[in-house]
Design a protein around this nucleic acid. Structure first.
Lengths: 206, 206, 206, 206
DNA sequence: AATGAATGAGATTTCATTCAT
DNA sequence: AATGAATGAAATCTCATTCAT
């Protein structure tokens, strides 16, 4: 009785371990360079057993993306507790900067996955990573919308309102850019400096 | 007589064709997903013959990076003809925006290569792509330096001078970020909008 | 039930078959001329499967050397049952002569492997075969030591004691020489005649 | 006029260089591990040009064996100047010992070639190296014959005459054995010690 | 549910040999 | 005669996936 429960628990633990290992290893080594054996080893699961939980390698990659989505959701849920949307966004930037060592070594998990998977021509997973990024964009846009910014003086004199979606793109684009550069230059300092710039930019918006 | 010359020319043409094909295909498919056969086919060269020109696949990848460096040098040389450094930078942004369709489909050639190669743990090519980006940074920093910007009002009131290197990082980071987002969202519009923002930012610097 | 055991048994049998086939085929064809396909065919194992048991061809070569070591150990263990060390050595010579047909066709397994592998400049396997020969030398030296030979009249009149290690070298050198000549001349008679000479030499030692 | 002669001279020089390089490199690296490019490089001849002088790799190997035969002939011609056949044989042993460093590193050129080529099953070159060894045997046998040894007391009491051919086999076998052991143990000292033993043996024959 | 073993398709690489001039 | 370039067959090795139990 407890045995069958135990087994189910142990099984889902294995599944969980596999997903966590996949998320970590795929981020560090990239999708193509990572073998199923790498992930299985890291998760301490026999190779043959992987296929019980995931029908193909691609499905495991998909699961890894799910892990990243879950991480993102946890983070935004935490940030949502802050009363001021601007503070939420600034805290997000801080969280990015805190990850600077990882970013300098391996880049942004979602960004690098999106770059690699995006090159696929079969429709297998090429848009999947984009979806995670879109989720982040949506959250950020919500914050900007809540900030009720008056507008910006583009061009001659008309007072165009800021578009929250565009602002979100600018913010996330800043994150992706600084992660990629920090990674390419192997310099976490890029994250610190560009993070400060982004924070200043957020403060400047009215 | 001219034949022997032809032969030599055709030969170096083959090498050239291989490098060009490698640069294109590696950008489009990524390093790991691309087989030598893919590149050979694209260059219309028998696979076995590739090894006459390049001892290993990695060497061909290196050559492809060289192609990207050459493209960059051509571009900056053209921009250098403009008298005003600010105009050069703005023209650079324009050039990026012009490439928006390619960026939306495959990302920035150098950026995505850097992301993929940067994950290698053997010292084979992991820093090579970073070097191309550094080259772009150096050129951009030179332009900012020439602009002789007075400084920026960071924080309390002190008039800190702008650091050209930091500005270069911000600019290139903006490019990498918008390329990655455009690619992830499959939306060239990102390039247009963020490009406009970068141009505005360049104009705002005094 | 027994099936799962069978499976494991069959598996290790496969490994065993591969090692045995490798030992035989590598001896007959030489290391470089032998392809993994040759060995796999001989062992009735699909080529791709070889790599489940041995990570590289070199590792399989190493395993084949292990087989030869095992053969040697079996032989010396059998000889060790004889009470008199001189009889053991003479029985060893007899065993060599018995193998004359194989020697005339393919040479001494260990000797020819040592000759081929010894030419490697990378440190991969170049000393491995030498180790097997050293093992034989050590065993032979032990027998000579047990024989407690008084000494030899080298030079002027001094009674220099025989060095068991040197005697071992002379004996094994005799074996290697006669195997190589029998092989080069394709004449097993060389083994018979030189074997008789070696036996006489062993008898003459006091 | 002189030009055409020059050309012919230069050409035969190239051929000569190729043969010398082949003899050296094939000895050091073995036949299968040596590429035509290796030999061409060593001889400072363009790869494509090799085929003007030698139709196939095997023919070049044959030519290398010819070089070794020539070396042997030079050596025996020099030894033939000594008046006493026993001295000739002892001088031969001395010459072998002088080569101990090479032997310890790469083995006997002819012996290791014979071992490697002897494994071939196609009739291409498998007996060719044996022929060089036979040539040495024949020369040695001639010396023994000239020594007019009375005979040996084999068995019960009959006075069997020594067979010069058998003595030659014993001598050359001793050489091959000590070369192989010196090589396997990477110890030139084996050559010195076994060489001394062979010299003593030659002296003991009456 | 679990797993060690097995498999084959495909990738990189090497190299003797040939070609074109 | 000479040679840089070309070629294809074959070898080693990798790995996602499947199998048998």
């Amino acid at each position: 009785m407890t045995n069958s429960v135990d087994r189910r628990v142990r099984a889902s633990q294995k599944r969980q371990r596999l997903m966590a290992a996949a998320a970590r290893v795929l981020h560090e080594q990239g999708v193509e360079r990572t073998t199923l054996a790498d992930i299985a080893r890291e998760a301490d699961v026999p190779v043959g057993n992987v296929y019980y939980y995931f029908k193909t390698k691609d499905e495991l990659v998909r699961a890894a993306l799910g892990e990243h989505t879950a991480h993102l959701d946890q983070l935004t849920a935490r940030l949502d507790r802050l009363p001021d949307p601007r503070d939420r966004l600034k805290a997000l930037v801080e969280a990015w900067v805190e990850q600077r060592e990882v970013a300098a070594r391996y880049g942004c998990p979602t960004g690098t996955l999106a770059a690699e998977l995006g090159k696929r021509t079969d429709g297998s997973l090429d848009a999947e990573a984009g979806a995670v990024i879109r989720r982040l964009l949506d959250w950020a846009a919500r914050q900007f919308r809540e900030m009720r910014l008056s507008g910006a003086n583009h061009g001659e004199g008309a007072d165009e309102p800021y578009d929250p979606d565009d602002l979100a793109v600018t913010l996330v684009s800043g994150y992706q850019g600084m992660s990629l550069l920090a990674n390419a230059l192997r310099d976490p300092g890029v994250m610190t400096r560009e993070g400060a710039r982004l924070a200043g930019w957020l403060d400047s918006l009215r």
